[in-house]
Amino acid sequence: FAGAFSAFALVALLSNGATSGPNHTILAGVAASQLFNALTSYIVTTSGNAQQARDVMFWLLGSFGGVRWPDFQLLLVVVVVSLAICIWMARALDAFTFGDEDAAALGIPVARIRLVMFAVTAVLTATIVSMVGAIGFVGLVVPHAARYVIGPLHLRLLPACAVVGAVFMVSADIASRVIVAQQTVPIGVVTALVGVPFFAIILYRARPQP
Score class of each variant (00 low, 15 high):
Ala7Tyr: 03
Phe8Pro: 00
Leu10Gly: 11
Leu13Thr: 05
Asn16Tyr: 15
Gly17Ala: 11
Ala18Thr: 06
Val30Cys: 14
Ala32Asp: 00
Ser33Trp: 13
Gln34Asn: 15
Ala38Gly: 12
Ser41Cys: 09
Ser47Cys: 14
Gln52Phe: 06
Asp55Asn: 12
Val56Ala: 15
Gly65Ser: 13
Val67Asn: 09
Trp69Ser: 06
Asp71Met: 10
Phe72Ile: 11
Ser82Met: 09
Asp94Val: 03
Ala95Trp: 13
Ala95Asn: 08
Ala95Val: 08
Phe96Ala: 07
Asp102Gly: 05
Ile108Ser: 11
Ile108Phe: 09
Pro109Ile: 01
Ile113Lys: 03
Ile113Asn: 01
Arg114Asn: 09
Val116Lys: 05
Thr121Pro: 03
Ala122Ile: 08
Thr125Arg: 11
Ala126Gln: 11
Ile128Glu: 06
Val129His: 05
Val129Tyr: 01
Val132Thr: 11
Val132Lys: 07
Ala134Ile: 08
Leu140Gln: 08
Val141Glu: 00
Pro143Glu: 00
Pro152Cys: 03
Leu155Ile: 12
Arg156Asp: 00
Leu158Asn: 05
Ala162Leu: 07
Val163Asn: 05
Asp173Gln: 09
Ala175Lys: 01
Ser176Met: 01
Val180His: 08
Ala181Asn: 10
Gln183Asn: 14
Thr191Val: 02
Phe198Cys: 02
Phe199Arg: 04
Ile202His: 07
Pro210Leu: 12
